[in-house]
């Protein structure tokens, strides 16, 4: 399934590459696309994805703030 989350603090292409790289470590994530200008991140994933862990990983990679949608 596909979920869109918002990541605050992305300001350049390196952030995009970095977050997409973090995502690629999760075997539950099939694809991840970050729009660094808006912070909107589209994630294609399975139901098993641990959102809290993803949030922790991304936030520890840089000065980012992950805003998960309410329904997650």
């Amino acid at each position: 399934m596909k979920t869109t989350i918002t990541i605050r603090g992305t300001h350049c292409k390196a952030c995009k590459a970095l977050i997409e790289d973090v995502c690629s470590d999760f075997k539950e994530i099939a694809s991840c696309t970050v729009d660094f200008a808006t912070g909107k991140t589209d994630i294609e994933h399975t139901d098993e994805l641990n959102w809290d862990e993803l949030k922790r990983e991304i936030e520890s990679a840089g000065d980012y703030k992950v805003e998960l949608a309410h329904n997650i």
Binding site: H11, C12, A14, C15, A17, L18, D21, V22, A61, G62, D63
Partner: peptide, 14 residues
Amino acid sequence: GTHCASCEVLVERA
């Protein structure tokens, strides 16, 4: 080409 902190992390991770 490193111009921000994200670049640091990116290169380090790679």
